[in-house]
C-alpha cells in the first residue's frame, strides 16, 4: 500500500504523517502542492500545519492548489483520504467534507491530549479498527481554529447518516465544537477529517499509540 502525504508551503506535520503511514506497514511519499498527479497512490493524507500561512481562512488557499484538485478527483473515484487538523480545514473548504472549522471559543490555541470516542467510522469496503461504537482513543489536539460548526439541519443530517466519526469524550471538547464533534466523514465514507492528530500518537514514547488505529482503519478500507 502506498500513501501520498501532501505538502503545502506551511505544512508542518507531514513527516509525522509519513512515519505513521510507514508504521502501518505501507510505503509513504510526500506529494508537493504543485503536483497535478498523485502517481497511483492508494490513499492520501492531507496533513496538519498552516498551509499558505492560513491566510484569509485556514485552508482557503490550499483548496485551489493543483494537488488538491487531484485529491478531489481521487476522492470522487472512491479513494480514501484522511485530513488532519489543517487538512480537515482544507477538506471542509474544498467541500469534500460538510461543515467548517471556526476560531476556538476561548480564542486560545489549545495543545493537549484529548480523549476521543470513535464510533461508526464507516469505510466503503469495511475498515474495522475504529468501528466499534465508543472506542476511546487518546490523541493530542493542537489548534486555534478547531471549533466544528455546521447549521443545525446539516448536523442532524450528518448524525443521521453516521458521518460523525469522532466525538470528544465528555469534558474533553477543547474548542467549543458543535455536539462535541471532532471528526466527520463524507456521505460515502471514504473521506475522513479530524482536528486531533493521530500521527502524533503512534509511538509508545509519546504516551499513546491510539493514532495508529486511525491509519489502520484507512489502510483496511483499501486492502
Amino acid at each position: 500500500m502506498v500513501w501520498g502525504v501532501l505538502q503545502f508551503p506551511g505544512s508542518c506535520d507531514e513527516r509525522d504523517a509519513v512515519g505513521a503511514c510507514e508504521r502501518t506497514g505501507g510505503e509513504a511519499r510526500l506529494v508537493w502542492h504543485e503536483a497535478r498527479d498523485l502517481e497511483g497512490v492508494d490513499a492520501v493524507v492531507v496533513p496538519g500545519g498552516f498551509s499558505y500561512g492560513d491566510y484569509l481562512r485556514a485552508g482557503a488557499i490550499a483548496r485551489f492548489s493543483p494537488a488538491m484538485e487531484a485529491v478531489a478527483k481521487f476522492a470522487a473515484a472512491g479513494g480514501p483520504v484522511l485530513g488532519i487538523c489543517n487538512g480537515f480545514q482544507v477538506l471542509c473548504e474544498t467541500g469534500l467534507l460538510p461543515g467548517a472549522l471556526l476560531r476556538n471559543t476561548d480564542l486560545r490555541f489549545v495543545c493537549r491530549q484529548v480523549d476521543l470516542l470513535a464510533g461508526g467510522l464507516s469505510t466503503p469496503e469495511g475498515g474495522q479498527s475504529c468501528r466499534e461504537p465508543a472506542e476511546r482513543l487518546s490523541i493530542p489536539a493542537k489548534h486555534g481554529e478547531g471549533r466544528y460548526w455546521a447549521p443545525e439541519a446539516m448536523l442532524d443530517e450528518i448524525e443521521a447518516n453516521g458521518q460523525v466519526a469522532f466525538r470528544y469524550a465528555p469534558g474533553h471538547n477543547p474548542n467549543g465544537s458543535a455536539r462535541d464533534i471532532a471528526g466527520v466523514t463524507n456521505e460515502e465514507g471514504n473521506v475522513l477529517g479530524l482536528m486531533p492528530h493521530p500521527e502524533h500518537a503512534v509511538d509508545p514514547l509519546t504516551g499513546s499509540t491510539d493514532g495508529l488505529k486511525v491509519f489502520e482503519a484507512l489502510a483496511g478500507a483499501r486492502a
Binding site: A60, E93, A100
Partner: peptide, 8 residues
C-alpha cells in the same frame, strides 16, 4: 469561491 465561506 474564495474571499468568503458562504456557509459561515
Amino acid at each position: 469561491k474564495l474571499l468568503a465561506n458562504p456557509l459561515i
